[in-house]
Design a protein around this nucleic acid. Structure first.
Lengths: 160, 160
DNA sequence: GGGTTATAGTTGAACTCTCAAGTACTTGAA
DNA sequence: TTCAAGTACTTGAGAGTTCAACTATAACCC
């Protein structure tokens, strides 16, 4: 294939820095949560997003959109969380295809206990190394990337 | 636990934007490479880093440091790449504990064929949405994060 | 109504990653 | 010289993710 436009040195370094940063950060969070709360980061996010929802409940489809998960991944994850007793699955009355995932009291308690350590880890790795201005600039850049990666989507978090 | 400093709204949005961006980008790259070249992104990086090494060969320990992989993950990955015939493992003469991973001609050919599509995908998702200044600013921020996440490490790529 | 199409979710197999051992060498020191 | 400690890597089991079916229900439409 001719005509490939390769990355220049600046782009190369940016790309690899992004890659390693996101990898290392994710691994750090996974290790911390796995050690302290027995779940991977993805599962923590599911509990967290449920806790913010009205009635601490969402349909699987809604939840999948919020945590940006495939239906399959979410289904496997919720199955495990249900076995732990942290989430409960209920069939919807109106549309019997849809399943509603609901955070249990036990799940809420686990989340409440996990949160401080998790937030500390995020702060330590993501915010302590940056100035406030750097952080705000970083957010703008990430918004631009996210808009492009995930176009069919209104304001991502602020309105939730 | 009292005294947790929670994330404010700006931090919250920054953090989630980072999370979703890195997830979506990684998934996009994994899908593209899996579809077009039958390997995940991590494996592509192993081939790419080997191709840049003198003699297209590195010890497992060196390679693990470069792709920031655990020894175990790398070992499993190289095993699979060896089964594909893309990498060859040789025992070192001097220190018989160490294994040298070497990119084969077949592996080099696979990499050469995979590269244009991969680079296009990276460019499409990471560079097209950003201005040049945004990109350079982004790099500075990522450098700061990387320094903190991975302190025991000199200049990551520029000197390679 | 009855058939097609779309939506909501689940399942199983294959694959990758993690973590905890385990093997095989080398180094250092008594 | 030999034995403890360290280094380099591998292995196996368990867990999470992906992809491609598959089930079940709803909506559309002639």
């Amino acid at each position: 294939m001719t005509g490939t436009r390769w990355l220049d040195a600046d782009e190369q370094e940016t790309w690899r820095a992004f890659l390693w940063t996101s990898r290392l950060l994710n691994e750090a969070l996974d290790r911390q949560l796995q050690r302290d709360s027995g779940m991977p980061h993805t599962y923590y996010m599911i509990l967290a997003m449920l806790s913010e929802a009205p009635g601490r409940a969402l349909t699987m489809t809604e939840l999948a959109a919020i945590v940006r998960s495939s239906p399959s991944r979410l289904s496997h994850a919720v199955k495990r969380l249900e076995e732990d007793g942290w989430v409960r699955r209920v069939k919807d009355g109106a549309d019997r295809r849809t399943t509603i995932a609901e955070l249990t009291d036990t799940g809420m308690a686990v989340l409440t206990e996990a949160a401080p350590g998790h937030v500390a880890e995020v702060r330590r790795h993501l915010f302590t190394p940056l100035t406030r201005d750097q952080m705000l600039q970083f957010r703008e850049t990430l918004r631009a990337l996210l808009d492009s990666l995930d176009p069919a989507r209104e304001a991502p978090c602020a309105d939730g």
